[in-house]
C-alpha cells in the first residue's frame, strides 16, 4: 500500500492530491531556505545549554535504578519536543495566515482538490521539516555518544509520529481560532506541554497526583517513547505511548478535515 492508500484508510475522503499541496508549500519555502537551515540549529542550542550548563549543576539522574548523565537523560526528550514544536509552529502559524488572509485555499478549492486533501497536505507538510530536523538531531546524538541502544533506530519513526500527531492537532485547533491573539493560546499550550511532560526530569520529581496528570500529556508519551528507545529501556508501556499518539493523529486529522470542509465550503 502506498502513502496515499494509508492516508485514505485513516482519513476518509482524501485522495492522492494532497501531494500537490505539499509540493505547493515546498515551492513557496524555497526562497526561505535560510530559515529552514537555521531551524535545524534550534535543538542543538537546547542541547548545548543543557550539556555545557545545566548538566554540570545537576550531575547524574537516577531512573528506575539506573543512573544516567543528565544530558543523556534529557536529549531524547529534546528530540520529542523539537518534533512537537516544529510541527505545531508549521501547522498553526503558517496555516492560520493562509486560512484567514491569503486566499490560497480558495483558489485550491476551485480545482479538483477537496478541503480534506488540503488538510492532509498541510499535516504531511508540517511534519516534513520536523522530520528533517529530527534526523539531524538523532545523528548528532549518535556522534555525541548520547545513544545507548540499537533501539534508537526506531526513535526516528517515533519522532515522525510525534510530528504528525501534533501537526494534526495544531491544524485542528487553528481552524477554530479567529485572531492572532488566539494564537497565543497555542503557544501557551505548547509551553505547558514542553515544561510539564517530564522532559527535563524524571516523572518521579512530581508529587503523586501531578504524575497522573502529566501522563495525560501527549508529549509525555512522545518523550517517554523516544527516551526508552534511545536508552534501550523498551517495555510494554511503550505500546501505550504509540497508541496514544496514533489515536491523536487519527482523531485530530479527521477533525481538521471536517473543519476545513465547513470553512471552505460555505
Amino acid at each position: 500500500m502506498n502513502a496515499s492508500g494509508v492516508v485514505a484508510a485513516l482519513i476518509p475522503g482524501s485522495s492522492h492530491r494532497w501531494a500537490h499541496v505539499v509540493a505547493r508549500n515546498y515551492a513557496s519555502t524555497r526562497s526561505a531556505w535560510f530559515a529552514t537551515v537555521t531551524g535545524a540549529f534550534e535543538p542543538f542550542l537546547f542541547l548545548a545549554s543543557i550539556g555545557i550548563g545545566v548538566s554540570v549543576l545537576v550531575g547524574d539522574v537516577d531512573v528506575d535504578g539506573r543512573t544516567y548523565d543528565y544530558t543523556t537523560f534529557v536529549a531524547p526528550a529534546m528530540l520529542a519536543s523539537a518534533a512537537m514544536n516544529g510541527a505545531i509552529t508549521e501547522a498553526s502559524f503558517n496555516t492560520f495566515g493562509k486560512l484567514r488572509w491569503h486566499r490560497i485555499y480558495h483558489s485550491m478549492t476551485a480545482t479538483p482538490l477537496t478541503p480534506t486533501d488540503i488538510a492532509v497536505g498541510e499535516i504531511v507538510y508540517a511534519q516534513l521539516r520536523g522530520t528533517l530536523y529530527s534526523t539531524i538531531f538523532l545523528l548528532a546524538m549518535v556522534v555525541l555518544g548520547l545513544v545507548e541502544s540499537w533501539w534508537a533506530v526506531l526513535a526516528l519513526p517515533a519522532a515522525v509520529l510525534i510530528g504528525v500527531a501534533f501537526s494534526a492537532a495544531g491544524l485542528a485547533v487553528v481552524t477554530v481560532l479567529r485572531t492572532w491573539q488566539d494564537i497565543d493560546l497555542i503557544v501557551f499550550g505548547q509551553m505547558l506541554l514542553f515544561l510539564f511532560s517530564a522532559t527535563f526530569y524524571p516523572l518521579s520529581v512530581y508529587p503523586e497526583p501531578i504524575q497522573m496528570v502529566a501522563q495525560l500529556s501527549p508529549l509525555f508519551h512522545g518523550a517517554n517513547l523516544c527516551r526508552d528507545l534511545v536508552l534501550g529501556t523498551v517495555g510494554w508501556y511503550n505500546l501505550i505511548n504509540v497508541a496514544v499518539l496514533l489515536g491523536m493523529t487519527v482523531v485530530c486529522s479527521r477533525l481538521a478535515a471536517r473543519r476545513f470542509t465547513s470553512l471552505l465550503y460555505k
Binding site: S28, T29, H106, S107
Partner: peptide, 27 residues
C-alpha cells in the same frame, strides 16, 4: 476554470510558478 472576484493569487510564488502549481492541482 474559475476566476474569483478576489484574485487569490499565491503571493509566495512568482507568475510562472503560480500557473505551474495550479496546473499540478489538476494532475
Amino acid at each position: 476554470g474559475v476566476v474569483p472576484q478576489e484574485d487569490a493569487l499565491d503571493v509566495e510564488l512568482n507568475v510562472r510558478e503560480n500557473l505551474y502549481v495550479y496546473g499540478r492541482f489538476f494532475d
